[in-house]
Design a protein around this nucleic acid. Structure first.
Length: 639
RNA sequence: GCCGCUAUAGCUCCAACCGGUAGAGCAAUUCCAUGGUAAGGAAGAGGUUGCUGGUUCAAAUCCGGCUAGCGGCACCA
């Protein structure tokens, strides 16, 4: 007999060879049904993997996050088996569980089309009915290589495993796959799944290697969960900023205007301008000075900074005149270095915080462009803070606090903070180890001291220094870098920046790069999706629509009201078209205008307005003055 | 950039069977209706089917190239 110790400290005895499924069953039949896998001495065990010696066990039930992973991983295997039956030449790359589902990378001569997904699903259902047991075997490296001798992808994976590492393979029916494991034990447990899409994916994520076909799918324990997840995917389509941006006339893209070069329509530009004003004032309040520099610069400027060397492939082609070669600037750091150097600086001048609303161009890969999220022409508020070393801590913190304020004002939330560090990749980072060590240590220490939680990301630094990236999760469930604070000891060297210290000698300042709100383009895509197009009043392109009940009787009153609101710098519109009231209401609702103001006999007589707020059914009648105060307050609160 | 899919009126559209020369709703226009919280009625108009070659007596439809968009991958200062 062996001792099985449970999480709560209880110990029970079992025959050697007992499986997690048996153990769960011995406690309660209900538990057996709910159990999906188990951690046995911290190793993930399949439901049917035998245990031969004393161990601690932690049963994984369906409500556990890990269970979803196991289910989806098993479903990936099931799909691979189905694909192999339909397309016998198929060979397989990797097939992991991911957030919300799984994928498997497949090499086959057959081009898998969307129509094929249904066929594959049907085959999967047939295999489920076969109730094939998913069994584990541990074999030597040699045996594994022999077993997968016809499969170059598996060969490569096996060869990359450390010597001595356990190699396990899983079989279900005629299908065998190399796999670390954590499986359901039997295909019959897989019931509610759907294949979602086919896409290309490079083998091992390397763009120099061949491309495999990747099928994405999702698998759930209950029909309700599956349907709920599919509903979420549908709902996301409704939120898509490209759809909303077109409906609400925020922006457009046009083949003739150029790929990835968005055009801001009046509604979109109004929102953007409101954001620009907001940021400008916020930065001024925080001691930033604004400058304006050109979108073109000389190539040598970017050679000095090092950007040309690192990013020339992602820059628009050079422009050459007889005397000089120019670049369409991909970012603004070098210009701000020049601003710094325009005067002799004293230690008393520092810190100097320069900010600019910068339009920049990057020649992004055509396949990566997407709506406003990824474009080739973008505008953002960019800033460079020039500080003494003893001011780094305070300046980084100031920037961090400013970022927090902006993100919260915009109704967004920080998902997590990432500390991007260098790794030993050749040529990717400038090569002064001493500067790097100092910069990285400074940021680490600062985050630790301030109790700011972060995850480290090796190899994600900029070529000139480490970054603190502020990550935001969008309504579409994308994680994007919203803001960034970067510590740079390199550009001050490259541009020979100096200040005169207390000692009368020249010293090197430090540059802190600060990005606040990504770009206006990307921010707009995020806000559209976040608010589903229904902007809060302070941002809304049109804040209120004045609708007279009858043109004859109420137009004058409506016009006067509209003029009053416009005088107060509210973004009011007057709908004095000859249309039915219901029609105008419908249109105002569909344009997601925060306030519709209907005025008729009642309002004219009592000098009031009747408003209905977007998303609400109630009609509220208040005096003009009260309405104005209410809107003023709402805009002030950014509610 | 790579793999795959898609492209019809201002917008939306699994309208157009197997190739026979284009159809609806909404919007817009004109006229009638003058109205209290999500579409009042009528009429006329709107198209070189993304571009470009080819096959064919005949192409929105079949084939090639290009462009753009979409789903991913790679990239992202």
């Amino acid at each position: 007999m062996i001792d099985i110790t449970f999480k709560d400290g209880n110990v029970k005895q079992f025959e050697p060879g007992v499986t997690p499924e048996d153990v769960a069953g011995a406690i309660a039949p209900g538990l057996k049904k709910k159990t999906v896998a188990a951690f046995v001495d911290d190793d993930l065990y399949d439901l049917n993997r035998p245990i031969y010696s004393d161990a601690t066990i932690d049963l994984i039930t369906k409500d556990n996050e890990k269970a979803f992973e196991v289910l989806n991983h098993s479903t990936a295997h099931l799909m691979a088996q189905a694909v192999k039956r339909l397309y016998p030449d198929a060979q397989f790359g990797v097939g992991p569980a991911i957030k919300d589902g799984f994928y498997y990378d497949i090499a086959t001569k057959h081009t898998i089309k969307n129509e094929d997904l249904g066929k594959i699903e049907n085959m999967m259902k047939r295999i489920v009915k076969e109730q094939a047991s998913m069994t584990r075997e541990e074999i030597s490296k040699e045996a594994a290589l022999k077993r997968f001798k016809d499969d170059p992808y598996k060969q490569e994976l096996i060869n990359d495993l450390e010597d001595g590492e356990t190699i396990s393979i899983y079989s279900q029916g005629e299908f065998t796959d190399l796999c670390r494991g954590g499986h359901l034990g039997n295909t019959r447990h897989i019931k509610h799944f759907k294949l979602l899409s086919v896409a290309g994916a490079y083998w091992r994520g390397d763009s120099d290697r061949e491309m495999l076909q990747r099928i994405y799918g999702t698998s759930w324990f209950t029909k309700e969960d599956l349907e709920a997840h599919l509903a979420v995917l549908e709902e996301r389509k409704e939120r898509d900023h490209r759809k909303l941006g077109k409906e609400l006339k925020i922006f457009m893209l046009d083949q003739k205007a150029g790929q990835g070069l968005p055009i801001w329509l009046p509604n979109g530009y109004t929102v953007r301008r409101t954001l620009e004003d907001y940021v400008y004032k916020l930065e001024r309040r925080h001691g930033y000075k604004h400058v304006s520099t050109p979108v073109l610069g000389t190539k040598s400027l970017y050679e000095t900074s090092g950007h040309f060397e690192h990013y020339q492939d992602d820059m628009f082609p050079l422009m050459k005149s007889k005397e000089e070669t120019f670049v369409l600037r991909p970012m603004s750091c070098p210009h701000h270095m020049i601003v710094y150097n325009s005067e002799l600086r004293s230690y008393r001048d520092l810190p100097l915080r320069y900010a600019e609303i910068v339009t920049q161009h990057r020649f992004e890969a055509s396949g990566g462009l997407s709506g406003l999220e990824r474009v080739r022409a973008m505008t953002l508020t960019d800033s460079h803070i020039f500080a003494r070393k003893d001011q780094i801590k305070e300046e980084v913190l100031n920037a961090y606090n400013l970022i927090n304020q902006a993100i919260s004002d915009l109704g967004l939330e920080i998902d997590y903070v990432e500390l991007a560090l260098r790794d030993d990749a050749k040529g990717k980072f400038h090569d002064d180890d001493q500067l790097w060590d100092e910069a990285e240590a400074t940021l680490k220490q600062l985050l630790d001291e301030e109790g700011i939680e972060y995850v480290s990301a090796k190899g994600e630094a900029a070529f000139y220094g480490p970054k603190v990236d502020i990550q935001v999760r969008t309504a579409m469930d994308h994680v994007i870098t919203m803001s960034t604070v970067q510590l740079d000891f390199l550009l001050p060297e490259r541009f020979d920046l100096t200040y005169i210290g207390q000692d009368g000698e020249k010293h090197r300042p430090v540059v802190i790069h600060r990005g606040l709100i990504s770009t206006w383009e990307r921010l707009m895509s995020i806000l559209l999706e976040q608010y589903k197009g229904a902007f809060p009043t302070w941002l809304a392109p049109v804040q209120m629509k004045v609708i007279p009940v009858s043109l004859d009787a109420h137009q004058a009153y409506a016009e006067e009201l509209h003029e009053t609101l416009m005088d107060l710098e509210f973004r009011s519109e007057l709908d004095n078209r000859n249309e039915k009231l219901g029609y105008k209401i419908r249109e105002a609702q569909r344009s997601k205008i925060p306030y519709q103001l209907v005025v008729g006999d009642e309002e004219v007589q009592s000098n009031t307005v009747t408003y209905r707020k977007y998303g609400h059914q109630e009609q509220v009648t208040v005096s003009k003055a009260d309405f104005i105060d209410m809107i003023k307050q709402e805009i002030k609160d950014k509610a």
